[in-house]
Nucleic acid binder design. Structure first.
Lengths: 213, 213
DNA sequence: GTCTATATCCAGATAGAC
DNA sequence: GTCTATCTGGATATAGAC
């Protein structure tokens, strides 16, 4: 015999997978037409449903953007958290920066939504943003492994790496005019910060994950 | 007696000033409603004309964006070219970076149009873009004064400074969490590049202004 | 939940008189 | 050059039958 709770579970799973299918179609469409050109009519057409049906799953267009953001942020956090082959802290920092750059340049629309924030009235909800905070915490950990804990230096790190990537994406989307500078940039950064922070030893335990931003 | 050429000159001047007035109104509106929210109806209303009259001066909405871009790019080049109070090359570099940051953070919409490029179907025409190239050439000159001529280092410079500014604008628009790092960043950059380029003496004559990009 | 049909609104752009 | 009036087409979102 089938219990009520199980039926409810099925329903929820079905509903979630239908939502996922719509989000998937939305991403496919956004990659073709650009993020701003996402229309609910086209989205419904590609997803094989009628336009009003979209509203059975999402309250508004921005709710769709939010789900797209959440999916992208999860991909981001997962990708950055995958194991690294190297062990030397400075190599780890280079590898993380390169992975970040590769993640960004491999899907420009995703990069735009996640990091550029140029969809008119849209801002991600805290839930959708949460995975991105995970990834940022990971970056802090890698910096800490290199003896870098000063907030100023963490900020400098984000500026340096996002600066390289944004120049790359904007001015040479399929080349490596800026991403090819990552290794040198990291060396410059490490030399500067480790000198400034007095080549502190790596702390035995990683710092707690408070105050991310 | 009035010559035909003078009348024609008047006409052109009148036309240009009418165009300028529309562009001015467009900027005022964009600062209120956001760049993407610029509508021709509202623009006409604020400029004191009817919507179709806009088309007597601009072929399309993108032509208006282009004129807005041109005006902003001119402001940018002019501001960056104003005389500096300091003479030491490294101080000059810091001053230029700070001036750039101040220019960007003092008008976020202008920054968005000039450097973020997130208006859907719009790309600036070469004419409108030209002043920005002038400013970039100026940056190269200041770098050259510091003995930095390697293209890689010029690219690193643009990435570093735009990275600081873009983080500032995106995450702390009215504070100085990243712009406050400019002085330290420039020191880091100079130490690195001058070491790498072997503390070359400043060339007697500035390099020619070819191959900007 | 899904559909057809439609409401409502606003955009950019044009026609043609004056 | 400027206007009134309008075209054309797009958008998000809703009503109500099934």
């Amino acid at each position: 015999m089938i219990k009520q709770a199980e039926i409810s579970g099925w329903r929820q799973a079905r509903r979630r997978s239908a939502r996922d299918a719509i989000v998937e179609a939305a991403w496919a469409l956004a990659r073709e037409e650009g993020l701003a050109g996402l229309s609910l009519r086209e989205l419904a057409r590609q997803a094989g449903i009628s336009p009003p049906t979209v509203y059975a799953y999402f309250d508004s267009k921005n709710a769709i953007y939010d789900a797209m953001f959440g999916a992208a942020a999860t991909q981001f956090a997962d990708r950055m958290a995958e194991p690294y082959q190297c062990e030397d802290p400075s190599e780890l920092l280079v590898a993380a920066a390169m992975r970040f750059a590769e993640f960004c340049t491999s899907d420009l629309e995703r990069y735009q939504l996640l990091f550029q924030r140029c969809v008119p009235g849209f801002e991600p909800s805290p839930q959708s943003y949460a995975p991105a905070l995970r990834a940022l915490a990971g970056a802090r950990d890698v910096l800490a492994l290199n003896g870098i804990t000063d907030t100023r230096h963490v900020n400098l790190w984000t500026a340096l790496i996002t600066g390289l990537v944004s120049q790359q994406v904007a001015n040479d989307p399929h080349g490596d005019r800026w991403t090819g500078l990552i290794e040198e940039s990291v060396a410059m950064f490490l030399t500067h910060c480790q000198r400034a922070e007095g080549r502190r030893p790596v702390p035995a335990a990683l710092p707690p994950e408070g105050a991310l931003s």
